[in-house]
Amino acid sequence: MIRLIHKRVLLGVAAMMFASVAQAQNAQTPVLLNPPEHPFNPPGAPQTVGGGPAEAANTDPRDFSGVWIDKPSAPAANYSIGDNPPLTPQGQAIYDHRLQMFEKATPIASPHMTCRPTGVDATLNPHLGVVVMQTKRQIAFISEEDRNVRQVLLGKSHPAKLAPTYMGNSVGHWEGDTLVVDTVGFNGLGWLDEKGVPSSNKLHMVERISKSADGTELDWDVTLYDPTYFTRPFRVKRRWAWASGVVQLEYDCEQNAPNEERNMVFENEQLRPICAQKLASGDAPDRVVCSKPTPAKR
């Protein structure tokens, strides 16, 4: 299942690149396995599926709980944070290299491709249903894809000492009926989208999220600040739609790790797999055991 997802992602990126570059006359039109207009009915095994009880959108502007799905502004638009991000020369060089390596079918390994939490890329570009849980103290965004679990603590400040993470540390507060989320503490490994826009550990993301009066849309106005890779703040807009009756399944990336399958290149050693061996011709990858056994007492 997961290998299907990865292929879908690659095809999605390919579609986007062909659309934006438009250079190859005889390039085959890539087929999106999971076109955004039919998010729950991909051919083959479904990931997020329907079939749950219908759930009416609620009109409380400060209650985001429920299930949502990103509505890309154009097919495959949610594989990219936008054209021409204002990159510094250093950022542009990384980005260009990632695009070139992808075109040569030797893609650079990203956290997404190597079963790590995907961070901003998954936050801004979810391709499957996102369950939102909300209590007085927090709003949690639970994405099926990448198992991106994002907890926004309400009314809190960032801790003074932050261990850097893929997801960063998110705190939120209400300004009127707009939820303002502030995220810092990234580890610098994350990509901002699947094309490969880089981010540093100085990345700072500010999201302003508000709900439509009828409760069926979430509007995201996101500003990304990264003095290492961006020459100026970069704004990204997203729109999520209420998704009634969606049931999340799971994304067990490590069980289906396709790491060696696509001739990945590792710009950061941390992401190099030690568990999966080269795939034979069959479906299941051979694996090496990569963890010491824990003592089991009986």
Binding site: G52, V131, V149
Partner: peptide, 28 residues
């Protein structure tokens, strides 16, 4: 995390989560 419509378990181990549908009697 407990809400009327869903209950969620956010496990620290390898960032797993599971949600429980409190409105369905049975799901496919």
């Amino acid at each position: 995390l407990v809400q009327p419509r869903r209950v969620a378990f956010l496990y620290q181990w390898n960032h797993w989560a599971r949600t429980v549908d409190m409105a369905a009697k049975q799901l496919d």
